[in-house]
Design a protein around this nucleic acid. Structure first.
Lengths: 237, 237
DNA sequence: ACAAAAGTGTTACGGTTACACCCATGC
DNA sequence: GCATGGGTGTAACCGTAACACTTTTGT
């Protein structure tokens, strides 16, 4: 007979409660104007038909990271996605069916690269963060936490590029950061700041789709960026 | 018969894996010189006798916050402790006995207020963060994450006071922040910075224990601090 | 009188912000 | 030739960092 008292030498885990552990993913994308999140219509009760984050349960042989990766692949078809753990949510009644704790991860994907088939298959949809519908359970709170985390992270590390195509214009980059922080930057200050960080390369190509003059394309340079201290964005808040 | 497929309308949770969910607490204290953490000698196998964070398992009817609060009360005798969730750790083999996921919380306590009896009872001990022994499982990693989180938080919110007695001198406050970031600040710059934040009150009392001249005591003013924008500490890094 | 810690103000520097005009091109 | 978005530099401002001497009082 093993002790239930943690401070006895014979203590074992046998009498401890086990719970369901879920992973929910806040998938961010950027369409050139707005910061968006990918939501799905929940396919089963309770709350069937309501909008929800994508998620799933942790399996015994997985880490949370593995589970999040699996879920992201399932719903987007993508691998190698930038991901960060946000928080673990544990209100007792957060899921009315059964006690479920959920760890939230946010992910950054290029909105044009993921599988359109899967979007259809799961009745998924992109919503601007500011115009998203109310979500089931505590998913709204998860989105808020993820957004806060994304803003902090993007201020000190060059993660924004995961949301853009490989080649992008200075204007796209600026619009992205404006979307992330819901603010406007001065064009000249923005360019100066970015250039001073020495983390993107100017290409000889131009994007001719948005103006007659065309605008230069840039590319993120992961090598360079490793050797740089990224300074916080603090432009005209 | 319920479906195991999350996208069938009849899906139920019945077939999902359940796991043990633990809470581990990084309890920070400050002795006037060093930032310290409270560790205990683990009382049962595996790793019996090794140093460990204080922790326990989540019970079905608790939130993680409730569990962390319970654990803190158990090991310190204290309530109403400043606490923040750090991260959830889920490596498959992190606990060799059984699959256990653990959410880490850090807590800030006044090192002189907690129960000395409990310290004895649990063979607990305070260690300077920089001189702590190796800990069991992934607890070293937890401490590193907690420290990073504490540093970030303390840079933008007035949480340091939880580590000090109610009345403290400017020098104590400075030493505290120096300990948190393992750095030195200029005395004059520090005082100017703190005073500009308008969050502590100067008292008429002096602490005569550390010098012949004595040094003024200050007190944190929670009311004032709510109305202030705390500016990041960026003093002589 | 002197040792030991407390207390205090000014200047230099560097990064952030504000700001306006010319360029290239397709129509 | 003109409309449209792209591209560029400089000066003011403000917070941070550097820096040294006087005060108090117990011994």
């Amino acid at each position: 007979m093993n002790s239930e008292n943690r401070h006895d030498i014979t203590y074992r885990y046998d009498n401890e409660d086990k719970v369901l552990l879920a992973v929910d993913c806040i998938i961010f994308g950027f369409d050139g104007e707005d910061l968006k999140i990918l939501l799905i219509k929940r396919g089963f009760e309770p709350e069937q038909g309501k909008w929800s984050l994508v998620g799933g349960f942790l399996k015994k042989e997985e880490t949370l990271e593995t589970a999040a990766t699996r879920i992201l692949r399932l719903y987007t078809g993508l691998d190698n996605i930038y991901m960060e753990q946000v928080d673990t949510f544990s209100e007792v009644d957060r899921d009315p069916v059964e006690r479920t704790i959920s760890t939230a991860y946010y992910a950054l994907i290029n909105i044009n690269e993921h599988s359109k088939n899967l979007i259809q298959q799961f009745s998924a949809n992109w919503f601007s963060v500011s115009k998203a519908p109310h979500l089931i359970f505590d998913h709204d709170k998860m989105v808020q936490h993820a957004l806060r985390r994304l803003r902090n992270r993007a201020a000190t590390e060059p993660i924004g590029f995961d949301l853009l195509p490989e080649k992008f214009t200075m204007r796209q980059l600026q619009k992205l950061y404006e979307a992330i922080w819901d603010t406007k930057f001065d064009k000249r200050n923005f360019v100066n700041k970015i250039n001073s960080q020495n983390i993107i390369d100017k290409l000889d190509e131009k994007d001719m789709t948005t103006s007659r003059k065309g605008s230069y394309l840039y590319q993120f340079n992961a090598e360079k960026s490793k050797t740089q201290d990224i300074r916080p964005f603090g432009l005209k808040i």
